[in-house]
């Protein structure tokens, strides 16, 4: 944002080097997780602030503020002080305050952290609308689902370095490192070894189990990852040669509200996710024998293939 000098490198915005620009000259809108409204101003005064500081005439300012308050649903709250607003209302006001200045780029720094689900959903809709309006939005988050639902491109950062960047779908489908796979929700990550390659699948060894994967690994030893929602749970063996089919034992179940995660021992320790209704219907208990199935495409080889 221009408050700290980078140790090295340049920051380009529309091919313009803005590395040495002061924050007020960058024209980047910033929304932080702390809902930093000016506490001594009401919502309207907060939203008006940026335009006022830029010397926008009163009439023009008032019109722009009215429009943005209307579009963000803040008109009824315009006279309220920040101390009297909920977290979601505050964050909407912060967003309105940024949008009214019409920045070319907006930086969202964990904007949904700590908000209730309803406020979070409303703000996500606003973020989507901003994208439709053609603005570049850089959204920093620790929440993978925010990345998937809002991002066109995704960069995964570890210890200050980008470890993978690409189209969101591509990053999701082909994580390049165990860290990326873990961040993206691949809970079943194992070291594996190549057995043999066939035309339409490859046989690999993971733990004490032989698995089929649709990917051809580039090395003899590698790591594979399976998403928990890709694993199906059955009471009897499903006769489908194309599927990976493992006999397992239920170890533990964790209720997550609408979903339940179930841990299995199947030559590998696997985690699967079931809907609450499917779990209740299956009536699974620790020690119960079941069959687990997943497609070869679900066994993703991490790294180069």
């Amino acid at each position: 944002m221009g408050f700290q000098k980078p140790d090295q490198g340049r920051i380009l915005l529309d091919d313009v080097d803005i590395t040495g620009y002061s924050p007020e000259k960058r024209g980047i809108g910033y929304v932080s997780q702390n809902c930093l409204l000016f506490p001594h101003m009401n919502v309207r005064q907060n939203v008006e602030f940026g335009l006022k500081m830029r010397g926008v005439p009163q009439a023009q300012r008032s019109k722009a503020v009215n429009e943005i308050l209307e579009s963000t649903g803040l008109t009824p709250l315009e006279k309220r002080r920040p101390a009297t607003l909920s977290g979601g209302e505050k964050q909407k006001a912060v967003l309105a305050r940024v949008l009214v200045t019409k920045p070319s780029t907006i930086l969202l720094d964990e904007p949904l952290t700590g908000l209730d689900p309803e406020s979070s959903r409303e703000l996500k809709e606003l973020f989507k609308q901003i994208r439709k309006d053609g603005k570049t939005v850089v959204h920093v988050t620790h929440n993978q689902s925010e990345g998937f639902s809002l991002g066109d491109r995704m960069a995964i950062i570890k210890s200050g370095e980008i470890v993978q960047v690409g189209q969101t779908k591509e990053v999701f489908a082909k994580p390049q490192t165990e860290f990326v796979a873990g961040f993206l929700g691949y809970e079943n990550i194992f070291p594996a070894q190549l057995i043999e390659c066939h035309n339409d699948f490859t046989l690999i060894r993971a733990g004490e189990t032989t698995l089929k994967t649709a990917t051809k690994p580039a090395a003899e030893k590698f790591v594979v990852a399976i998403r928990p929602e890709d694993i199906g749970v059955h009471f009897s063996r499903v006769e489908n040669g194309a599927l990976n089919m493992l006999e397992g034992t239920v170890l533990d179940c964790t209720d997550l509200g609408p979903f339940v995660t179930v841990a299995f021992e199947a030559g590998l320790q696997l985690q699967a996710v079931m809907t609450k209704s499917a779990f209740v219907e299956a009536n699974l208990e620790a020690g119960q024998k079941v069959w687990l199935s997943f497609k070869p495409q679900a066994v993703r080889v991490i790294g180069k293939t």
């Binding site: 944002m1 924050p23 007020e24 910033y30 932080s32």
Partner: peptide, 18 residues
């Protein structure tokens, strides 16, 4: 007063004095 509040003001186009 949190310095972050002041930084927010700068990011909205205000100079240090403003």
């Amino acid at each position: 007063i949190s310095p972050s509040v002041e930084k927010t003001g700068r990011s909205l186009g205000a100079t240090r004095f403003q």
